[in-house]
Write a protein that binds this DNA or RNA. Sequence first.
DNA 1: ACCAAATCGAGAGCACTGCTCTTGACAGCG
DNA 2: CGCTGTCAAGAGCAGTGCTCTCGATTTGGT
Lengths: 236, 236
Amino acid sequence: MNAGRTARERARAEVTREITEIARRQLGTEGAGGLNLRAIARELGMVSSAVYRYFPSRDDLLTALIIDAYNAVGEAVERADVACEPEDHAGRWRAVCHAVRDWALAHPHEYALIYGSPVPGYQAPVDTVAPAMRDTVVYGRILASAYAAGALAPPDGFPAPPDSFAGDAEAVRQVMPGLPDDLVARAIAAWTGLFGFLSFEVFGQFANVVDDRAALFDHTVDTLGRLAGLPAPARG
Amino acid sequence: MNAGRTARERARAEVTREITEIARRQLGTEGAGGLNLRAIARELGMVSSAVYRYFPSRDDLLTALIIDAYNAVGEAVERADVACEPEDHAGRWRAVCHAVRDWALAHPHEYALIYGSPVPGYQAPVDTVAPAMRDTVVYGRILASAYAAGALAPPDGFPAPPDSFAGDAEAVRQVMPGLPDDLVARAIAAWTGLFGFLSFEVFGQFANVVDDRAALFDHTVDTLGRLAGLPAPARG
DNA sequence: ACCAAATCGAGAGCACTGCTCTTGACAGCG
DNA sequence: CGCTGTCAAGAGCAGTGCTCTCGATTTGGT
């Protein structure tokens, strides 16, 4: 990942970096569909065909941007998590949610790239699955840690998952070890709920409906965390 | 909506219908970005410029498809709702959720069009807001009716929304009259949670993680309905 | 029944895209 | 030094959205 030995290798890495940087800026202003190899080449002072030396196709550039985006959220989430008291599970959950939201609002097009409609005709290669898991892994760690500490006390009155869910729960437990099936199901509901809210917000579904989205988000995060079993927030 | 007077008007309506039909099929196979005016013209046996007599731009065609999509979900949801016993509020909620899911899985690209990333550079015109509200209106009616019947009994142990939410709650009450602020907040969480789950499912985020998505969906719908205060399901 | 106005499809054309192929220049290594 | 692999450049292909013009047809009013 760091500087290669030969001058050629270093130059190549530098140009590659510049291309993704310009592409990311293009993505921010035009969206995924507006990714334009020729415009990137123009901005670099190169001819379009030269860009193909670095990315064999537009989709490969997109893949690089997708991986970057996953890593950006993942890193933001990881940083927000470790900044918390390890035993303050509700605080960690809140920090993670806000990290995702802050990043999503700052980079709506990149959020759309990874959590919105898949790019037509584009099939995510395997290289993307590890970065795509980073935020989920953090989330799972929080819940597993809370459960291990006996701090997961889900509210009563909710139905239990069907027995047929046992298999999937076992798979999901890879990222949140120890949780019983019903808590796994709730964890998924809370997680998808988070992104449901954010998609509504980023994609403009709240326009003319909800004004103070930050306040509603705060409260929704608390509600979802509570649903997953995390303790209720101390604040008012 | 029905046959116009003159032969020309009828022919125009027919060609317009054919264009949107082909476009919708194209959308189903290629996605929104693959919408291709020239291919539509070819399939119609016309020349590309002729299509512009009916839709002044690609975006206008897209708008028509978006409105169609909103109306399709809206109609599916309305039909599912009226097929239920009016006082079976939990059943109506379940029916609505399943109607949305069935439609989304049957028309993933159209779902992406209205609930996924907004098309880059495309600004939804006002004509879309009424169709976009249809499903939400049905949802609000169910909750309002349940609340009026005294059937909304939300589980305890969840935080109350902040006072600053009062203004937004008042606005949202237009579609779910009577509900107190805390139930409005929960209603939004349940609604966004539904689409969060569906977006994960339709956009492939569940791949290699959750296999039996139908079962988990059923359970998540019950959980979200319960969160909103609807009675727990009778089934096991 | 006629005629002007509106509407329509065809065709050519513009500016642009992703992508391919070839050519000539240069850097790295023996 | 010379060989080999890499590079940017340029021309070019097929395709796109969209515009403009030009005849043909339909429409509605007289």
